[in-house]
């Protein structure tokens, strides 16, 4: 646990020293959202209708975009191999990295989302559902994305490949995440939806670190 703590702290420190890595996904999120009124229609009724889906897809893409660099720097500068030759658990370190990645992307995306929801005329009743679903859903996205990032970190052309590997696995989270917001907008109960998202998160949290560690070892030893 101490090691997990230390790993999270180190990653957060690195993220703070490299602020563009935090800001870029947020800016991307905002930008993608802005495209829709321009491309579809600025009409409040139309936008409110598609807002849950758009916000969720944009959050998903923003997470995915930031995934590519998750292990890349560590791989390039040799930090990753130092971890592999250390007696510490690689799965735990991977988990630490994902947690701090989520804190600097998914968590902030969730906090930013109400602003975008207002811009898309999402009814205010849906705000708790939006923030809640993003808070509970995006950790799963970070964990699954990290598996893809770990598998492709040693490849020269990993960027597009990671989307191909990861996007199909994102679908359940997207379905339940967007449905939560839709239910919220209709004033329907959302606790069941959130519980399902939570179950997915716990399930992924238990299994993904091992898959990430196995994938990292493989990429290092390639």
């Amino acid at each position: 646990m101490n090691f997990l703590n230390a790993a999270i702290k180190r990653e957060l420190l690195l993220a703070l020293r490299n602020r563009s890595e935090i800001i870029n996904p947020l800016a991307f999120f905002l930008l993608v959202i802005t495209l829709f009124p321009l491309a579809v229609s600025p009409e409040a009724k139309v936008l409110a209708n598609i807002a849950p889906g758009i916000i969720w897809v944009a959050a998903l893409l923003a997470t995915l975009l930031s995934m590519d660099s998750l292990f890349k720097n560590d791989y390039d500068d040799g930090s990753l191999e130092q971890i592999v030759v250390s007696p510490q658990s690689l799965a735990l370190l991977a988990l630490g990295k994902v947690i701090s990645h989520w804190l600097s992307t998914g968590f902030l995306l969730a906090l930013l989302s109400p602003v975008l929801a207002v811009m898309l005329f999402l009814p205010s009743e849906a705000m708790p559902a939006l923030v809640g679903s993003l808070l509970i859903g995006t950790p799963t996205l970070s964990l699954i994305g990290a598996i893809g990032a770990a598998l492709t970190v040693g490849l020269r052309k990993g960027g597009v490949l990671i989307s191909l590997l990861v996007l199909p696995l994102y679908i359940p989270v997207l379905i339940f995440g967007a449905a939560t917001v839709q239910a919220g907008a209709l004033n329907l109960p959302i606790s069941g939806h959130l519980a399902l998202l939570g179950a997915m998160m716990v399930f992924t949290l238990l299994l993904a670190p091992f898959a990430i560690a196995a994938a990292l070892k493989l990429s290092i030893r390639n």
Binding site: L14, R17, N18, D77, S79, E81, Q82
Partner: peptide, 10 residues
Amino acid sequence: GHHAGIKAAL
């Protein structure tokens, strides 16, 4: 190893 394993930002 070849790579220093040093983080430039730290």
